[in-house]
Amino acid sequence: MAPPRNHRPGFSRRAQYTVFAGYVLAASGALVGAILLLISIIDPRAFSALRGAMREATTPISSGADWVWDGVASVPAGIGDYFGAVSENRRLRAREEATRRYLMQARLLNRENARLRTLLALRDRSAAPVITARLVNSSASSTRRFATLNAGSRQGVMRGQPVRGPNGLIGRIVETSPNTASVLLIIDPESIVPVRRTRDGLSAIVAGVGNGMVEVRTAGVVNAPLLAGDVFVTSGTGGIYPPGVPVARVSRSQRDVAPARVFAEPDGLDFALVERAFLPAPVPRPTPSATPTPTPAAE
């Protein structure tokens, strides 16, 4: 026969002790409550002090429990804030990258605008320019330095005309075809440009050396100092280049001959202005025809 499911408390001594302890705690709680009630009625001040002592004893426990609860409750919010900060950081980085691209484009447009304005002002200042054309290529791998212009004899380009850019002199036309022209750059070893120094008018010539640089050589003055930073412009001598066009700046101080860097770097140019020669070639005089010798009349 199966034992009954429910036993009386007397079946187990442990159960008896548990029941007895419950009764004792209940009676003690009722007695303490009655005592506190009597104290609050008879002496409210003593009860108030006792209540303050209870608050002092339980406040640290309550504060610790609240701190633990706040920490546990803030874990989900902290995780959400972390992932939110990560996504916000990514979004800000993407915006910064887009802003950097826009800033770079704005700088390029500003630089191109300034260059075109300079070229337009140069065209306005130049006396009867022939045409503004594009430099389509240059011979950078050879000791000879030429550039090709996408304008030729059909556009009025002729041999001997100077070519200049927004920053200075580029070279001169040496060969033409109907729609193209070959430009001898001033950095070519065969190029010689008469110049003068801006600060004192010292006469010199600028000759190319074939490596992207030029040499400034004094003319008519012996042992003349050429200082770094001296600027040389065309003098107009020779009748090809108009005076006052920037040509080169001395890069190292020397005497008589000094290296210099040109203002118009051909590798960084795209548009150029073709001008008429400063002094046009003299028109040859017609050869007078021979006067026939009169024959004497027959008698």
Rank of each mutant, 00 (worst) to 15 (best):
M1E: 12
A2M: 07
A2L: 11
A2I: 05
G10L: 10
G10A: 03
G10D: 06
F11H: 12
R14H: 10
Q16G: 01
Q16E: 04
V19G: 01
V24Y: 14
V24N: 14
L25N: 05
A26K: 05
A27L: 11
A27K: 08
A27G: 08
G29Y: 00
A30N: 06
V32I: 08
I35N: 09
I35P: 04
L38P: 13
S40C: 01
I42N: 04
I42W: 09
P44E: 01
A49F: 01
A53W: 05
A53I: 04
E56S: 07
E56Q: 06
T59P: 01
S62H: 12
A65P: 05
W67G: 14
A73V: 06
S74P: 01
P76S: 00
A77M: 03
G80Y: 04
G84L: 05
E88T: 02
A94V: 03
R95N: 07
A98D: 00
A98I: 01
R100H: 10
A106P: 00
A106L: 09
R107Q: 04
L108A: 03
R111L: 04
L116N: 07
T118Q: 13
L119G: 06
L120G: 07
R125M: 05
R125S: 11
A128N: 15
A128F: 13
A140V: 11
S142E: 11
T148D: 14
G152Q: 12
G152S: 07
R154L: 08
R154M: 02
R159D: 13
Q161M: 13
V163W: 13
G171V: 12
N179Y: 06
T180C: 05
A181T: 06
A181M: 12
V183T: 15
I186E: 14
S191G: 00
I192Q: 14
V193Y: 10
V195P: 01
R197K: 04
I205G: 01
V206Q: 09
V216F: 02
V216Y: 05
V216S: 03
R217P: 09
N223F: 04
A224P: 02
D230Y: 00
F232S: 02
I240S: 05
P243R: 02
G244D: 15
V247I: 05
V247Q: 07
V250C: 13
S253T: 03
Q254K: 02
R255D: 03
A260G: 08
F263R: 11
A264S: 05
D270S: 15
R276Y: 09
R276D: 12
L279H: 06
A281P: 14
V283A: 03
V283L: 12
P284M: 00
R285E: 14
R285Q: 14
R285V: 14
P286N: 04
T287G: 03
T287I: 09
S289M: 03
A290M: 08
P294D: 11
P296M: 07
